[in-house]
Write a protein that binds this DNA or RNA. Sequence first.
DNA 1: CAGAGTATTGCACTCGGTGCAAGCGTTGGC
DNA 2: GCCAACGCTTGCACCGAGTGCAATACTCTG
Lengths: 198, 198
Amino acid sequence: MDSTPATPSLRERTRRAVHAEITDTALRLFAEQGFEATTVDQIAAAAGISRRSFFHYFGSKEDVVLGDLEALGLRVRDALEARPAAETAWEALRAALKTLQGPDTDAVTELQIAGMYADAPSLRAKHLEKHLRWQELFAPEIERRLGIVPGATADPRARAVIAAALACLDIAVEAWRESGGTADPVDLFDAAVAAVRA
Amino acid sequence: MDSTPATPSLRERTRRAVHAEITDTALRLFAEQGFEATTVDQIAAAAGISRRSFFHYFGSKEDVVLGDLEALGLRVRDALEARPAAETAWEALRAALKTLQGPDTDAVTELQIAGMYADAPSLRAKHLEKHLRWQELFAPEIERRLGIVPGATADPRARAVIAAALACLDIAVEAWRESGGTADPVDLFDAAVAAVRA
DNA sequence: CAGAGTATTGCACTCGGTGCAAGCGTTGGC
DNA sequence: GCCAACGCTTGCACCGAGTGCAATACTCTG
């Protein structure tokens, strides 16, 4: 995460610290009382900041859980573009999405977060919204791999492949959660994709 | 729509009338000012009811646009179950989803509604939420067609196929909207599916 | 050290949505 | 035809998320 080499200035450091403090506090409260039952005021109070400041760090309550999906999307896109040109769209997507399962992901926390999705519609909603953004983000690269000329009329094909892959991802994660974290997410993903393409 | 044979009682008739009045008024305002810029108070005032009554007819502002997706989902599920047992999951889904394009759908209104999705995240979000409900709704029938024993562990396959099909549907509709309503939605859907399964 | 820039905060406000209770009309039983 | 039960409408008060604004306090740059 910290690709900043030298001193990132006091401001930046405190900013990161506060950001982390809010995240930790909020996730703890969410785990204790549930996402919806926890108010922003509670989080702010528990984190020792004002309600207004909370909204300076996060655009919404959901964003605390979702993290920076925008940045994550960019990383996946980069991974996608770095895949060999010979790979098919599906192969490249599979490999790129696997980078999400990095070493920085803590299984217990992930399981907790996945659990929140189950009973917080607004959370799922924002998550799905972000996936729509990813669709646009990945589309150029997928169009390349599908051999589609980019300038043409609105072509549903690239978006469809990406949407299907992301749906498989979400479903794999959900099934992983239902298994209590025992099943292998990659296996589940592959099973989902195989069923779709059978 | 009106499968009610006899007089559906005065209450029921007025209720339907008010419901329709709200819907018409709201859609007009949405078309004029945009979805987000229109407040519930405006709709209620324009429809001649109180703000509180609005929320007796619709659970949320979004519901006015989304209509009764729950009922629609049930219809699609019935269509799905009515398909020949010999059809594959994809064939059955394609046929069942085609029933959505019934004679009661007005192209101009549909185009307007599709347009609202473009600049109203909350609308898209609720729409996607409903599709998650559809996933569960269709899952048993799709599991049957995939030859999956229902009692087993959480199997991602059926959900994946359904999610992929719904994604293709949404993308086809979106592409249809971008074409200004000229392209054929079914062709777009088929193209999307073909790309996913290629 | 002075000034430019940024972070924090409180305040007031908007908007969506809900619970409650009172009032009124409809409906059905007698 | 009357009365009671029910349902619908409405106003009111309330909550929680999110935003704009302006004052204050802090950090950084020259």
